[in-house]
Every structure is written in C-alpha cells, then in structure tokens.
C-alpha cells in the first residue's frame, strides 16, 4: 500500500488552501424596494423584476 512518507508541513497545507477562499455574492439594490438582491433575478422581497410584478410575495412573520 502506498503511504505518505512525510507529514504535510504547515506551509504546504496552507499553500494548498490558497484557492479555497469563498467570495461574497454580488448583491445589488432592488430598484423597486431597495432591498439587497442577487442581480438578474426577481426580487424575493417584493416580487418585482424589470418594473412589473412577477409573483405575489406573502408577508413573512418575523
């Protein structure tokens, strides 16, 4: 059975992880209700996209 000869050093381990960083989603303000939303999508808060209502959004109790 092949086995690692050496323990992976901290340096090597961390270098491997240089590409693992996560990036925050690019949020834009909704032109209708000014909530932060994902671009090119219907606004999940007000149900509007390109100036018209797409879907009824019910009020959430929080």
């Amino acid at each position: 059975m092949p086995l690692p000869k050496r323990k992976t050093s901290k340096c090597r381990r961390d270098k491997r992880r240089t590409h693992d960083a996560l990036r925050a989603p690019n949020l834009v303000p909704c032109p209708n209700c000014a909530e932060k939303i994902l671009p090119h999508r219907m606004c999940p808060h007000c149900g509007y996209y390109k100036g018209r209502a797409i879907k009824e959004v019910e009020e959430r109790k929080t």
Binding site: P31, N32, C33, A34, E35, H45, C46, G47, Y48, G51, A53, E56, V57, E59
Partner: peptide
C-alpha cells in the same frame, strides 16, 4: 390598480407607482 393592490399587500413596495 393592479400595481396599487400589489404594493398595498406588502409594506415594502413604495417607489413603484411613479415609474409607471
């Protein structure tokens, strides 16, 4: 009227009517 009814349902839809 449809837009008014829609915005009336949710509190967070103020800026709509001026646009149309």
């Amino acid at each position: 009227s449809a837009a008014a009814a829609a915005s009336g349902k949710k509190a967070k839809a103020p800026a709509k009517k001026q646009k149309k």
